[in-house]
Amino acid sequence: MKTHLIVQGTDIPTRDLKDLAKLAGADAIEAISATAFRLAAANAGARAEVATFCESKALDHGWVPADRRIGDFGLLVMDMDSTLITIECIDEIADMQGLKPQVSAITEAAMRGEIDFAESLRRRVALLEGLDKTTLQRVYDERLQLSPGAETLLAAARAAGIRTLLVSGGFTFFTERLKARLGLDYTAANTLETADGKLSGRVLGDIVDAQGKADWLARVRDELGMDAHQVVAIGDGANDLKMLAQAGVSIAYHAKPVVRGQASYALNRVGLEGVIPLLGGVRPC
């Protein structure tokens, strides 16, 4: 089977592309966009040498079957915090109560896989007890930003008829607003309990943890009558690993090392638009 090498970066010198093409024995260098190039019919036997070269030049790369097309996929599953959006919502909520260092430390430990996610979430949410619930809207309005390339990726998915699922260990307050804003098909997250206009420090119902994310992916996939190879999943932390394992193509986005080591692809330098060439597509105009 022929394989293309996708190379991506914010500024790729022509010399580096030519050196890579020679190293990988590629037939041609094809520009996909200003930051993405396809090295056609590359030799996958050069994976180790290419990986070393790309790391030394701060480039993202991925080996893609030559016959892959974005239309082969039917479901795109994304994590929210630090993936679809640039922030960790709970850390920003805590910041408004002067508790960001304590909460962020727990968040980081959970993302590295050092603390069970459900336990880490309970501990973090407990620290928010008594916070006015209007703080959630302030975080959404003042601090929440989409990751670079998010809307470009979603536009390409819509154009290809791909359904979208945003599944998060964060909170429904944010996922539901993003669903309406971005036209997402499905969302799942945790619900913060409130009482008398304030956060109670508790989460309602079952916590959407690593297994919960994987279960939601499987539920929507089966509902749509799809197979695993039609699913793409994107995440950044240890809590995403079970979800990523359920997908035919998994992408570690600016992720922790434990995630990069287990995903199909890793994007460390470009934004979410970098997913599109890995799926055999091109960026929409």
Rank of each mutant, 00 (worst) to 15 (best):
D79A: 03
L241D: 09
I70G: 08
V125Q: 04
R283Q: 00
V103D: 03
A46N: 06
L267G: 12
A110V: 07
L278T: 00
K213V: 11
E88W: 07
R158M: 01
G130D: 10
K198W: 04
G161S: 12
G170F: 00
E114I: 10
A24D: 02
I12K: 00
L224M: 10
V208M: 14
G183M: 09
L199V: 04
S264N: 02
G170I: 08
G197K: 08
L241C: 10
G71C: 06
F174M: 05
A118E: 12
P284Y: 03
L17M: 11
L136T: 04
K179W: 09
L20A: 09
L217M: 15
P277Y: 01
A110H: 01
L182R: 05
L217I: 09
D196H: 11
A36R: 06
Q102C: 03
R68K: 12
S82R: 04
L146W: 01
A180I: 06
E273Y: 00
I251H: 06
V270I: 14
R219F: 03
A66I: 09
A180D: 13
A44R: 00
L279H: 02
Y253F: 14
T187P: 00
R47C: 07
G62Y: 03
D16A: 15
M226Q: 13
Q246V: 09
A94H: 11
G149A: 01
D19L: 14
P277G: 02
G183D: 07
P101Y: 05
L279C: 14
A44S: 11
G212K: 11
N268R: 07
S82A: 04
R68C: 08
L178V: 11
R112A: 14
L99A: 12
A26R: 06
L75M: 13
L144V: 14
A42D: 04
A126H: 12
V203N: 03
G235Y: 13
A195W: 10
M78C: 15
S56D: 14
P277I: 10
L75D: 13
A58Y: 13
A255F: 02
I87N: 10
A155E: 09
A94E: 03
G281E: 03
A109L: 04
R269W: 06
G169M: 10
V270P: 01
G45S: 02
F171L: 11
H254G: 05
I106R: 02
L23H: 11
V275C: 14
D141K: 00
V270T: 13
L75G: 04
L154S: 10
A252M: 13
L178W: 05
I32W: 11
A157Q: 00
A26F: 09
A159V: 05
A245K: 07
M111N: 02
A109V: 05
G170N: 06
L17C: 15
A238R: 03
I6R: 02
D79F: 01
P101R: 08
A46W: 00
H4Y: 05
